[in-house]
């Protein structure tokens, strides 16, 4: 509930770069962080992550930023839709 009261903050380019770097490292992606387009889909077509990759990213991001990503959030589809939306979510919800 309290999550909804947080204002939507747009992520900075620095945070997007940092998140992209974490994803590249934890998934051993064959692209560099700055090759990940902020608005390309992460899941399925696009970067081509599968649900296990998403889990791996979620675990790493939860630890790094103190997030609680839950499956009952209807927003997951949106949060993981692109690097930009993922970084925006982190900017709004991070506790670390």
């Amino acid at each position: 509930m309290q999550d909804n009261q947080k204002p939507n903050i747009s992520s900075t380019a620095d945070l997007r770069q940092e998140v992209a770097q974490l994803m590249v490292e934890c998934l051993n992606l064959e692209v560099t962080a700055d090759q990940i387009s902020p608005d390309a889909p992460l899941y399925g077509d696009g970067l081509g992550l599968d649900s296990i990759d998403v889990l791996e990213v979620a675990l790493v991001l939860s630890k790094r930023y103190g997030l609680q990503l839950r499956s009952d959030s209807a927003d997951n589809q949106h949060i993981f839709s692109s690097l930009r939306s993922l970084a925006d979510y982190i900017a709004t919800h991070k506790t670390l």
Binding site: Y43, S51, I52, V54, L55, A58, L69, R70, S71, S73, N76, Q77, F80
Partner: peptide
Amino acid sequence: GLGHIDSMLRVRE
């Protein structure tokens, strides 16, 4: 069900 973006989060819960 597999094939959802949050399938694995459900498993974890």
